[in-house]
Amino acid sequence: MIALVRMVSGLVLWAAGFSVLYTLHGLGCALGWTGSSVFGLTQIKALLIAAWLGLVAAQAGIIVWLLRYRESQVDRIGIANGWIGFFATVVGGFPVLAISSCV
């Protein structure tokens, strides 16, 4: 069972990360975190960028963890899923850099 969980761990983390970004964005806009913070960024934008970078780092960490198990095909599928989760987090969260937050 652990092997199955490991196999989808990268994708589970992507799903959690996606939910975190969407929730933070909704909360930040609703609660008006639009004042200026660091480097001229709004509070919400700074928070979202920090969260996104943290999630990308976590996805990278999952890959490093998954690379310790590579004997079976299930393990190798898990590694591929880890890379998919990483790539999806990078691309899916990219709008935090490029698009205005609450408009």
């Binding site: 969407y22 964005h25 979202l48 999806a88 691309v91 709008p95 937050s101």
Partner: peptide, 15 residues
């Protein structure tokens, strides 16, 4: 819906 949220879902839809 705010544009940034649209961006999240647009990116996932293409992925």
């Amino acid at each position: 819906i705010p544009h940034m949220a649209l961006g999240f879902f647009s990116a996932a839809s293409v992925l």
